[in-house]
Amino acid sequence: MFEARLLRGSILKKVLEAIKDLLTQATFDCDDSGIQLQAMDNSHVSLVSLQLRADGFDKYRCDRNISMGMNLNSVAKILKCAGDKDTVTMKAQDNADTVTFVFESPNQEKVSDYEMKLMNLDLEHLGIPETEYSCTIRMPSAEFARICRDLSQFGDSMVIACTKEGVKFSATGEIGSANIKLAQTASVDKEEEAVIIEMDEPVTLTFACQYLNYFTKATSLSPQVQLSMSADVPLVVEYRIQDIGHIRYYLAPKIED
């Protein structure tokens, strides 16, 4: 039997909102350490890696490892039926072909359950090595979302150039060109609002704005976002989910033909 109960049910609502536009279906791999999900978008240039640790749930039971293939649009529709303050429980019998979501209102007066058919997905799994990146940028997630939204009006690609002075986001297109420079925050009094850059060597890479705007759907999950870059490898955009895990997006850089 698998059962995962989360008092902060809004986390699961936000997680689905953060991945349902990029992925159509994915497998939730559950074991006693928690829930992992890894899937590429249809074009295979971006990937989502979600981790929700068992110890972040208010109750977590996983008698046998279980992989549940789900249509993410359906899951998003079900989770839209949960209130922001509801407790959400996900449960499934061993080798079941359905999963049940139970929503309990804070005063326990309303309990809803939604049963959904599981899918047989044989999605390939990529091995992503732990990597030391040349540049990592920690910044307010709302700031990053704003930059992606603003610059994507100027062109379908964004150049991210990181040096020890700071990070520059640029885009050019028919209407002109745009540059946004963020300097490293000097006095870090409020960590959440700081721009913190760790740079071993400068990196400049180009990415498709469309995917970056999909990634920023995760903004409500974390006040900060971390960008990790090295020459000629995919960008990593990470949103930490407090006390339970993270959601990481990977995006292949655009390279000259």
């Binding site: 590429m40 295979h44 240039v45 971006s46 990937l47 390939e124 799994h125 990529l126 091995g127 992503i128 090595p129 690609s157 180009t206 498709a208 490898v233 995919p234 990977y250 292949a252 850089p253 655009k254 390279i255 000259e256 033909d257």
Partner: peptide
């Protein structure tokens, strides 16, 4: 023009 590699170019399929 530019292109993007599929992520299998960067990460090993397990």
């Amino acid at each position: 023009a530019t292109h993007q590699h599929c992520l299998r170019v960067y990460y090993q399929v397990q």
